[in-house]
Simulated scan of single mutants.
Amino acid sequence: MTIHRAVVARVRLLTSSMARITFHGEGLAAFRSTGVGDEYVRLFFPHGPDRTDVSLPDSTDNGGWVTPEGRPEAPVRTYTVRAARPEDGEIDIDFVLHGHGTASGWAAAARPGDVIGLNSPTGLYSPPADLGWQVLVSDLSGLPAVGRLIEGTPDGVATRAVLEVPDPSCVPPLPDRPGVRVARTHGGNGHGPSRLAELVAAAIPPGTDLTGGYVWVAGQTNALRDVRRYLRKELKLPAERFKVVGYWIPGADTWTERYRALPDAVRSELSSMWDNPSAAAEEAEDLTIRYEERLSTLGL
């Protein structure tokens, strides 16, 4: 993994609640996109008022990073790469502007010359070889990935995108591709209860012929627990036929504090659930369901 230094080149307001920020600079010369539509990076933000002073960490041999001794730790957030243009040395990242939080606050004031750090990208979308149709479901946080996934979908693959957004003004234009249908519903996104699980069940009801299908769902993390359970336990989808990706958590700023406040025995119980790193993909999905169920009983 490489940590790159990126400089803001342009800022464009897509909607009243989303801005596209284009990054460039010599630090991106070694950036290599995976080409996967939902690839994501960790962004390292300035730790103080100087928007060009970023405490970039050093990458480690195990794929992580460490802050150099004597330097402040940079705030870190995870974001999707909306577009990568290696020929121009640029990448685009879309930010939801919701009025609070480290990343949103930084993006709302972003201007050319601002500096951030970002690591090498990782993609999660992995449809099967026999892909004939797919369903993409997300809230506002997943729209950048949905747009790029639609752009990269092969001709002949029927795609249904179901989007939960606060209101119609929040949705930037999506690529117009043959075979793509887009439906929108209003709600969720921190403005009310998320309906992502309901939307997934309506788009793929029990009895659906799942041959050649793939399901990709992203958005509010705790709302996706019911989605994963539905796809795996009720529809009996094998792990290679779906991907559920949590993008954000209500009260994220206090989540870690609440987790650390758990009794030592409970935290040990939770961490021990992942003691078998060689578990097969099928087992990993079932383990994730058990882990998420335990978090729910703990109010997390």
Rank of each mutant, 00 (worst) to 15 (best):
G89V: 04
V81Q: 03
A197P: 11
G179W: 00
L287N: 03
A223D: 02
A279H: 03
L13M: 12
V81K: 02
A110L: 09
G213S: 14
L235N: 03
P68G: 08
S17L: 07
A265M: 07
A239F: 06
S278E: 15
S120M: 06
I150S: 06
A19C: 10
R5L: 11
D209I: 13
V8F: 10
A279L: 15
T297W: 01
L210R: 12
R51S: 10
D50Y: 01
D94P: 01
H98V: 05
L196C: 10
S59W: 01
P46R: 11
L163F: 07
A218V: 10
R225D: 07
P112M: 09
I249K: 15
D58T: 00
L210H: 11
P205C: 13
R228P: 05
S104V: 02
A279K: 06
G213F: 05
A281V: 00
R225V: 12
L224S: 01
V41E: 00
G63S: 11
L174Y: 08
A145I: 07
A145L: 04
G132H: 05
A183H: 15
P75H: 05
E269H: 12
E151Q: 12
T78L: 04
G212D: 07
P86V: 05
E90H: 07
D53F: 15
I204C: 09
P178M: 09
A107G: 07
E234N: 11
D264E: 15
L224C: 05
T211N: 09
S169I: 08
G152S: 11
F44M: 14
A145Q: 02
T159K: 09
D176E: 14
V8M: 12
P250C: 03
P154G: 08
R82A: 12
V76G: 04
I116V: 15
A158I: 08
R12L: 09
L43S: 09
E285C: 03
W133D: 04
S194F: 08
G89W: 04
G147Y: 04
R148L: 02
G99K: 08
E198F: 08
V81G: 01
N119R: 06
V180R: 09
R241Y: 04
V171A: 02
G299T: 06
E39M: 05
A145D: 02
A30N: 10
V171C: 04
T102D: 01
G101R: 07
A252M: 11
W274P: 02
T122I: 15
P206F: 00
V8Y: 12
S138C: 14
A84G: 02
K236V: 13
T2E: 13
P127F: 05
I93F: 06
E282F: 15
I289E: 03
T80K: 05
M273N: 09
R181E: 15
